[in-house]
Amino acid sequence: MSDEVRGEWPLYEVFVRGKRGLNHVHVGSLHAPDDAMAVRHARDVYTRRNEGVSIWVVRSDAITASSPDEKDPLFAPSGDKVYRHPTFYEIPDNVPHM
């Protein structure tokens, strides 16, 4: 048997859609030997009370993340673009439906 067989089951991240019309949301993680078992475990661990209508699982090592620092330059371009928000524009009170 290979080393991996003897090791820990890989880690999966679990995403649950609470109900139709909502996004899948990250709820936590778990260990499973393969994708199919990860879905079954996710059902038992994260949806014992009808918390979901759909489950996604993805191996944690398949996720690419941005840098952990919130002040990362990655997010800087959106910092100074206040004109992307509706509140940037002043509209007189007597203009309806806007």
């Binding site: 067989v5 003897r6 089951w9 030997p33 393969d34 078992m37």
Partner: peptide, 8 residues
């Protein structure tokens, strides 16, 4: 171990 071996 069996579950891992099966997955492999």
């Amino acid at each position: 171990e069996a579950a891992m071996a099966f997955a492999e």
